[in-house]
Amino acid sequence: MNAGTYPTAWRPPAFFGSRTRQRIALFCGAAYVVWSLTDLNIDVNRMLAGFPRALNMLARMIPPDFGRWALLLDGMMESLQMALAATLAGALLAVPLGLAAARNLAPMPVYAVARGFIVLGRTLHEVIIAIFCVKLFGFGPVAGLITLGFASAVFLGKMLAEDIENVRLGPVEAIRATGAGFGQMVTYSIVPQVLARTVGVLIYRLDANVRHSTVIGIVGAGGIGQTLSASFSRYDYDFSAAILLSIIALVALGEGFSDWVRRKLR
């Protein structure tokens, strides 16, 4: 074997097709970073000043102050209650919404309206919905309940609609062929097919609502988020740390519970 006859250099094929295109892609990426950073007017000095401030804040967070546990527990319970009630309310509202948004069940105009509602509801962040609910229902957990209930209904409705659209049509036809009405058809051919998955989605949504319930308090919609927001504005960092740790624990527990139930369901 003569080494001279074989190439001594090799480069892997370019990720974006050709080497020129790869260079252009890299250049665009770099140009974007430069543009966005200049566009954001980032004050480097202020950013650097943040690091000692972060250390200072961390020092004040340790040890976390669990002394006001009654206040903390109140907020956590409120969040949990909002999440639970919202999940149930959302589930009830999701049934008609899901039926209306299933292409294979609903007539076209109903389908279009329901789908439009779902798209609108999913696009706007919970916090935006919450701020409107606060305007309509005043400060407090009711606004939070409505926000989460609305968001849950939209989410569950969408999942339900997709599940219904994916049902096997054989059983539906068979039940229709017996002369059953719409309600009978739904209970005998669609419910059995989508029930298990829907319960799984419902549990997942309960877990998601626990997460969201911790944040909508920022705009006054009740729950632990309101307590956290207040503690930050008072520079009450040791209490903030206690709240943050409690939120992490609650969310982690919620996720563990949700995973456990969904594993059991399978």
Partner: peptide
Amino acid sequence: LVASRSVNTVIWGLVFVAIFGPGPV
């Protein structure tokens, strides 16, 4: 992992505004 995922983006925002001051950073 758990700490990062359990705290909502907006709540992280609250924390980082206290550190870096208001703004996109």
